[in-house]
Design a protein around this nucleic acid. Structure first.
Length: 502
DNA sequence: ACAATATGGCCCC
DNA sequence: TGGGGCCCCTATTG
């Protein structure tokens, strides 16, 4: 039972010899992604443009900006004239793609000014999944390794809904809002169930149990509280409004298609190992993607799935795959993240090879939430969490802590992150300042001592490492508050800020 | 300070 | 194909 620790020297030796060739060669390649923002680590964002390799054009203020080339910049500036678009539109031309391209540049620039808006640490285990509310712009649902779910409106001081999980073994693999009732969540849990959780009424409806999940029978027949033997559990879910269907994948390679109310349509073993991700294509209702630890992503025609071999396409990877997301803008691209150092972008025009292969450190570790690169909802951009690796080309010693999960909201102007036990909300500086001011006002009115949501009510933690982090996050917020207070010359607020710090 | 815990993935028998 | 042991090397709690 006790973990066996190898001597350090052997460990390092192994790590070195195990570093994959592709990463070494990747080191020679020009970095294919751009880094926005600056220290501290938690404030850095990595965004990739899925077009041409970028060229670094210098640093300003707190972050570095990269763009393709000067010529493109100039062309875009010219093309970005509204008159140009109106004219094109009048001629009957499609301006959508161009307009998007044009708006992408200012958006990229704005990323340099992203700041932490709020943080929350409501769980007793780490964050495992995160979903934005489909219609409410400032609400996120986050799930934890202990089965807890929080629905959090971060623009309101204390507007949260918390559903307690079962603790060990109830790790939430994935959550999805119901497309019909936004107060309901489909939840894939490590306890072997797929359920529909009502966030208002708190009712849970178990809509499916993973095959061979016989632990309850064992408990009943023996009449003892033996250790739970879970053979199977669900790891991923997706819901299709147009198909009125739910897909889920389990830890041994099965994929199950269900009606939204839970009637099983089929259950097939489509992968050799754990199905880490399942997703319907938003533009093509019969198209399904599945990603697996068996190192493949498979694209399926839902109207014709018989066995693990009759996929439309297989996308072989060099390592297990954590996720494969279709692009939200047109559904024509697929973004995959492996368990070592690759992010790939495939295009539906040619599934045989990746369109882009991005070297990026995010290796698998048992006690870290698997990193999954996600799309920006409107632009041809992706965000990815990072697990700094001393062996990865370009590693610097001050890379301290990592962000595991990252998702932009449907509007595309706010980013929610999962970082260990913490949930972070990022937005543009001016937006943050305005909203924090608003929160501060509410705080003083209600006499609330802290707006950093924590399961300990904002108290300092016993562990020095954690409290340092929390204090940093809090003090950063306070620092912002003080700056604001100075601007608006409110002595009372200054005092309040100081009090909060203690 | 130190040990235990956590349900990830691979290899080998 | 299944299970035990090992390795990846974090963060929290008692």
């Amino acid at each position: 039972m006790a973990p066996v620790n190898q001597p350090k020297d052997k460990k390092h030796e192994r790590a070195h010899e195990r570093w994959p060739e592709e990463a070494k060669s990747a080191g020679k390649r020009k970095p294919d992604y751009e880094e926005l923002g600056n220290e501290p680590q938690a404030k850095r964002l990595f965004v990739r443009k899925t077009s041409k390799p970028p060229e670094k054009i210098g640093r300003s203020g707190g972050g570095s900006m990269v763009r393709n080339n000067r010529v493109l910049f100039h062309q875009l500036d010219r093309q970005c004239s509204i008159v140009h678009y109106v004219y094109q539109n009048m001629l009957g031309g499609s301006i959508r793609a161009q307009l998007r391209q044009c708006l992408q540049l200012p958006f990229l620039r704005s990323l340099a000014s992203y700041r932490l808006f709020r943080t929350a640490s409501p769980f007793d285990r780490r964050v495992t999944c995160l979903e934005w509310h489909p219609t409410h712009p400032s609400t996120v649902a986050v799930g934890s390794k202990g089965g807890d779910i929080i629905l959090w409106d971060y623009e309101v001081l204390t507007k949260t809904c918390f559903i307690k999980g079962k603790g060990p073994g109830d790790s939430l693999g994935d959550i999805k809002f119901s497309p019909y009732e936004a107060v309901k969540l489909y939840v894939a849990s490590g306890d072997g169930t797929l359920s529909l959780q009502d966030l208002e009424g708190r009712a849970v409806q178990v809509i499916s149990r993973a095959p061979d999940c016989g632990h309850e029978l064992i408990l009943c027949s023996l009449g003892l509280m033996l250790c739970c033997c879970f053979f199977c559990w669900y790891c991923s879910v997706d819901v299709s409004a147009s198909c009125r269907a739910v897909v889920t994948g389990d830890n041994v390679g099965n994929v199950v298609l269900l009606s939204t109310s839970g009637e099983e349509i089929w259950k097939l073993k489509l992968h050799r190992k754990k199905v880490t991700h399942v997703e319907f294509n938003s533009r093509c209702e019969w198209l399904l993607a599945t990603a697996s630890v068996d190192q493949t992503v498979k694209i399926w025609d839902l109207r014709n799935i018989k066995n693990k071999m009759n996929f439309l396409h297989v996308l072989p990877h060099d390592k297990p795959v954590n996720a494969a997301y279709f692009s939200p803008t047109d559904g024509a691209k697929l973004l995959s993240t492996d368990q070592r150092s690759e992010i790939r972008v495939y295009s539906s025009s040619d599934w045989t090879k990746p369109q882009h292969l991005i070297p990026h450190p995010h290796r698998q570790f048992q006690h870290l939430t698997p990193i999954k690169a996600t799309w920006h909802p409107r632009y041809d951009l992706i965000v990815a969490g990072r697990y700094p690796d001393p062996k990865f080309p370009g590693y610097t010693v001050n890379e301290l802590r990592t962000v595991d999960l990252n998702k932009f909201n449907p509007m595309g102007d706010t980013l929610a992150s999962g970082m260990g036990f913490n949930i972070l909300i990022w937005s543009r500086e001016e937006m943050v300042a305005k909203k924090q001011e608003h929160l501060l006002k509410a705080m003083t009115e209600q006499g609330i001592g802290s707006w950093s949501l924590s399961r300990r009510g904002g108290q300092r933690q016993a562990n020095p490492g954690t409290s340092k982090l929390k204090a940093n996050l809090l003090s950063w917020e306070l620092e912002e508050m003080r700056t604001k207070s100075n601007d608006s010359k409110s002595q009372g607020r200054k005092r309040k800020g100081k009090d909060l710090e203690n």
